[in-house]
Computed example of a mutant assay.
Amino acid sequence: MKFHPLGHSHLKVSEVCLGTMTWGIQNTQVDADEQLAMALEAEINFIDTAEMYPTPPNEKTYGDTERILGHWLNRHQHLRGQLVIMSKVAGGGLSYIRNGSGLSGDSLTEALHDSLARLQTDYIDIYQLHWPNRATPHFGKHWPGKTDPRKTDVAAEIEGMRDILVAIDKAIAEGKIRHWGLSDETPWGISAYLKLCEEMDIERPVSLQNEFSLLHTKDWPYLIEQCVLENIAYLPWSPLATGILTGKYIDGERPPGSRWTYIQRQGLFRDKQAAHEATQRYQQLAQAQGISSAQLALAWCRQVPGVTSTIIGATSCKQLLENLKAFELELSSSTLKQIEAVMHHYPAGF
């Protein structure tokens, strides 16, 4: 396992981050324990969760992923100092989480208190803002006409960011979080926070989580360049595009228990013909190399300049083992050129 600096922090994290969002719906506590044991055996020291998890989010299971991880942490307290644990405060839009209110200093403080209790730990290494208050081109809204930045009240947005940063600064001073990061952000949002941090003398964000995969490359190269030059760790989530890149959903297939068999809060906006056609092409490339299409996608993501650690999840140890083996692979220049050819033909899968 290779390790990389996490942005400007002193932390070093494994190039694989264990995602946990299936724990509580698709996975039980026993499953989670098995996955964590396998991750530790592979020398993974990086774990990602969120108060909103598991997904698809719903009121009944809200917070259960943190509870499952917390139950494990309580039984393995001697390992806490060896791990880098990230969690996220939810933004607005979910009525059962703080009445659907957006992010603010008060909501962050309340959410952090509750997350620490569920995780059964005194501190969170990286506390992230799960999504911004304003409408942004994420979650299927990256096509023209889906968002209108002219409708953003910039002054109100900046004032809200100030309020959030005051709460973050207080949490760092109290030792409740070590560092903080962003998620599902844009270049403007990153720049605004960096400017405010300098103005307010508050620690800068150390990381950014955004969706990134062979089917969804909108951050490359421009946003990733900003992260690299500003010393912010770039952490791709959903590198398998919610499982499409495994090939399991081709021809309308819905394997029992798979993520797409559950009701989706935002609909299956990734279920597009181009995504499936591109996946079939990637499957052919992978078969020629004697690897799975999932491994091809993960190995590709790993080698993108600027990627610090890739967040992977699995619903079984068999899947997790297959995914972990991808990080032992080095794709040849010939294979990378063939991948590039497919990307030229399918520049945006969904």
Rank of each mutant, 00 (worst) to 15 (best):
Asn58Cys: 12
Leu79Pro: 10
Thr55His: 05
Glu34Cys: 02
Arg67Trp: 06
Thr22Leu: 08
Lys60Cys: 06
His78Met: 00
Arg67Phe: 02
His78Ser: 15
Asp31Val: 05
Gly70Phe: 02
Pro56His: 09
Gln82Thr: 12
Leu36Cys: 04
Pro57Phe: 06
His78Glu: 15
Thr28Gln: 09
Ala32Trp: 11
Leu40Asn: 04
Glu59Gly: 11
Leu40His: 12
Ala42Ser: 09
Ile25Trp: 11
Glu51Lys: 06
Asp33His: 10
His71Ser: 14
Cys17Met: 15
Glu66Gly: 00
Leu83Gln: 13
Tyr53Phe: 15
Glu41Trp: 02
Gln29Leu: 01
Gln82Asp: 15
His76Gly: 03
Ala50Gly: 13
Ile25Arg: 11
Gln29Ile: 04
Glu41Val: 01
Asp31Phe: 01
Glu66Cys: 01
Thr22Arg: 02
Asp31Met: 02
Gly63Pro: 14
Glu51Arg: 12
Asn27Cys: 08
Glu59Lys: 11
Arg67Ser: 13
Pro57Leu: 06
Leu83Thr: 12
Ala39Leu: 00
Glu41Ser: 06
Asn58Asp: 15
Ala32Ile: 07
Glu51Trp: 13
Pro54Tyr: 05
Gln35Cys: 01
Glu41Pro: 06
Ala32Cys: 10
Pro57His: 01
Arg67Gly: 03
Thr22Trp: 03
Leu18Met: 01
Asp33Cys: 05
Val84Asp: 10
Trp23Asp: 10
His76Trp: 12
Gln26Met: 01
Tyr62Glu: 00
Gly24Asp: 04
Val30Phe: 08
Cys17Phe: 10
Glu41Gln: 14
Gln29Tyr: 05
Gln82Ala: 11
Met52Cys: 14
Gly81Ala: 07
Glu51Thr: 15
Arg80Val: 12
Thr55Pro: 01
Cys17Arg: 13
Glu59Ala: 15
Ala32Val: 09
Pro57Val: 07
Gln26Asp: 05
Val84Phe: 10
Asp48Tyr: 09
Glu43Val: 02
Thr49Lys: 01
Thr61Cys: 03
Phe46Val: 09
Asn45Cys: 01
Leu73Gly: 14
Asn27Thr: 09
Met52Trp: 11
Thr22Asp: 03
Gln26Arg: 07
Gln82Gly: 10
Glu43Trp: 07
Ile68His: 04
His71Tyr: 08
Pro56Ser: 09
His71Pro: 07
